[in-house]
Simulated scan of single mutants.
Amino acid sequence: MRRSVLLVVALLLLATAAPPAAAGPAPRSPAGTASGAGPTTRAATPVQIYGAWHCGNDFCTWGTVRSVAEFDAQNRWLVDRGDGRPSVNLVVLSFVNPLALLRQTTDQATLDGVPRGMTPEIVNYFTSRGIRVMLSIGGITYTDDWDAALAENPTLFGQRAAAVATRLGVGIEIDYEQNTDPNLTALQAFIDAYRAVHPYDATGARPQARLTIDVAAGDRWLIALNRKATADWLRTDRPVLDYANAMVTARPASASSAQANWQEHVDGKPQYSPPVPPLAPAKFTGGIYIAYGGRPLPECVDWATSVQRATAPYVQTVAPNGAGATAGMLGFMFWAAERPATRGIGTVPPYTCEGGVGAGATALDVPVPMPPLRQS
């Protein structure tokens, strides 16, 4: 079986003329082998989501108001890959403190529960160019605050998230990274309250109706959250959330490692007790680093040797394995634009990402604006 897989990998690499990934061996191939026949490949499904989490200039707090001119000087690559077209079709502003949002906190860094830097002007900077915008609630730093907000009043919390979405014309991402006994009953109440204001919209026409969730890179962390999300909120027959993002690992991963993690979502974990069901490929994206440490990553500056190029055949053709009807994941999410950490170079000049993310948008023919998403 391993020999057959390696043969298919070789054929895929020859067909795309892609060089080997810079880190790790050739990626696992999604192509199948028919009984009694040679290797076969599936047609590539177009990438629909090609987005970046955005941490602002203060390490994901967004605590200060910024002028559009200053913001543009640091982030121009996101809206111009070098030919006037955006490099991405989605930006997720990260992060909103969940407890501050519930309590509508106003302080030096927050206004009515929302970071002061997440202004209508910054949202319009992207949406005026056809880029969808979402706000991410949570992140690992705010795990305890997620717990507190859910314990205090999950229904009001969901209503206030919906109100912010209405006011700014954005979607909402749930980033609840509680690995031990997450409050899933209260999270259900949060989602119900949000959906009472902004019902699920398969067309994607209303930005405020876009409600997503982050899950671990694979199925071995955030297990209870992932199990609940896959079983009840990300089904193709009765969807509640639009899709999930398989987040990045603790440090940048090779193409083969990234694919192995994503395959865990597709396969589920039937050996767990209770089991984690399989997730439809059309219901999640895969996360990749573009900023980490003190040197630029190929994922930011060099499409030819990037993980996204090496994994693109897998992302576009991975077959369902118990859930969903169509092959291929929704696309890629990149962590993270501008200044995601107190150390490291980020994605600001001179280390901007037109040559990696932007070139990938061209090579993969990423649609801007984002089209209606596949539903099965």
Rank of each mutant, 00 (worst) to 15 (best):
D83W: 13
R85Y: 05
Q108C: 13
T230Q: 06
P369L: 03
E152F: 05
L168K: 11
A34I: 10
L6T: 15
E70L: 07
V133E: 08
N245I: 14
V9T: 12
E338I: 07
G355D: 03
G286A: 08
A15F: 14
C55M: 06
T61V: 09
A231C: 14
V9Y: 06
D237P: 03
N124T: 12
T352K: 09
A253R: 02
T127E: 06
A224W: 11
A161G: 09
T317Y: 03
V114M: 11
R295F: 13
P252G: 02
T203S: 08
G130A: 13
G171W: 03
D107Y: 04
D232F: 13
A359Q: 12
W233Y: 09
S257M: 12
T317R: 04
A37F: 11
R227Q: 11
V307Y: 13
V91Q: 01
G36P: 04
C300K: 06
W62K: 03
N97E: 12
G139P: 03
G268D: 06
G51A: 08
N321K: 14
Y292K: 09
V92K: 00
A209C: 11
A186I: 04
V366A: 10
A282P: 06
A193Q: 00
A361D: 04
L241T: 13
V133N: 01
R129V: 11
A165W: 03
N261D: 13
I288M: 08
T127P: 11
V92N: 01
N124S: 13
Q188C: 11
G138W: 02
S254R: 02
V91S: 00
I174A: 00
A363E: 00
K228G: 10
G169Y: 00
A21V: 09
S306N: 02
P349Y: 10
P239F: 01
T352C: 10
D192M: 07
P199S: 14
R206T: 14
S273R: 15
I288G: 06
P182K: 06
T119D: 08
R28A: 12
V91L: 08
P98I: 01
P120N: 00
V65Q: 13
D72M: 03
M370I: 03
G344V: 02
V8L: 12
A363P: 00
R251C: 14
T180H: 13
E70S: 10
R343G: 13
I191G: 00
Q308H: 15
T185W: 15
A229C: 02
V133C: 04
A310L: 10
R309S: 01
V368N: 01
Q48L: 05
L135K: 01
W77Y: 08
D232L: 09
R160D: 00
G113V: 04
L14P: 08
P350R: 08
E70A: 06
A216H: 08
I288R: 10
I49N: 01
R81I: 08
R309T: 03
Q178K: 15
A209T: 11
A341H: 06
R66G: 13
P372F: 14
F126W: 06
I122R: 01
